[in-house]
Design a protein around this nucleic acid. Sequence first.
DNA 1: ACACTTGTTTAGAATCATTATAAACAGGAT
DNA 2: ATCCTGTTTATAATGATTCTAAACAAGTGT
Lengths: 132, 132
Amino acid sequence: MKYIDKLRNSGLRPTKQRLQICEVLFSTEKTFHFTINDLEQKIKNKINNKISLATIYNTVHAFEKKGYLKQIPINSNQTYFDTNVTDHHHFYDLKNEKLIDLENSDVGPINIKRKINGKKIKSVEVLVKLED
Amino acid sequence: MKYIDKLRNSGLRPTKQRLQICEVLFSTEKTFHFTINDLEQKIKNKINNKISLATIYNTVHAFEKKGYLKQIPINSNQTYFDTNVTDHHHFYDLKNEKLIDLENSDVGPINIKRKINGKKIKSVEVLVKLED
DNA sequence: ACACTTGTTTAGAATCATTATAAACAGGAT
DNA sequence: ATCCTGTTTATAATGATTCTAAACAAGTGT
Ligand SMILES: [Mn+2]
Ligand SMILES: [Mn+2]
Ligand SMILES: [Zn+2]
Ligand SMILES: [Zn+2]
């Protein structure tokens, strides 16, 4: 399995549940955005055994900490995650609550001129809200 | 009172609670960021009567809908609001969970080149996450 | 001033995403 | 096989937010 090494190299045991969640999250060429609820449904559809909700939360947070997922900050009652962990920006369609990736070339480089003493920049993200 | 007209012109009755919340939110020259919890504390400190938590939620949402407040999208368990309703960007200090305004001149104009069919841009916000 | 309508406030309950608990389980090393 | 420790799981707890519906108050008209 291609995910076993990925997990081992991160210090995560390659359990059956984690491998199956890897399959759901990382086996497609296209990256995507999801909530825990979305992921729960995808898992239900793609595998026959059950993975507990607690494990889904645990795994997503473990993967996030290892840099295999990232959270996207939007105002929603549910947390959105992204399998695209490169630096990139988003459209957020307020009507259907869906995120759309923006290529960096669609926005251009962003130059933050101001500095805060003792702090360094971890990320720069643009969120473009869309309405009808 | 200076807030009575503001409220009446928005179709909101100038109740005692709303006027007091206006005082807390809009009487300082500096704008600021807050959570509902922050606001609850500020209210407790500045006035002697009690305003119920439900009213604080109701009022914040009413003011948001009228454009007197806006929500700032960040990944936090609590919703952040801003009394600065102009288009502007933010630093977000991950350590102490505080927002800092960025002047538009600190970021420069952002040109979104891509268009989505049938949708128009409502806002463009940059979030710069800070770590130590 | 009074009555009437409708918007607002309120305490408390409900909702619901997320996190904590702690017991059963499984990976991996020896 | 045994042991250790990380992981999974069902379930409970948490906590921010929203809902409910009854009491209340603002505004309007008389
Ligand atoms: Mn997380
Ligand atoms: Mn809201
Ligand atoms: Zn994305
Ligand atoms: Zn701000």
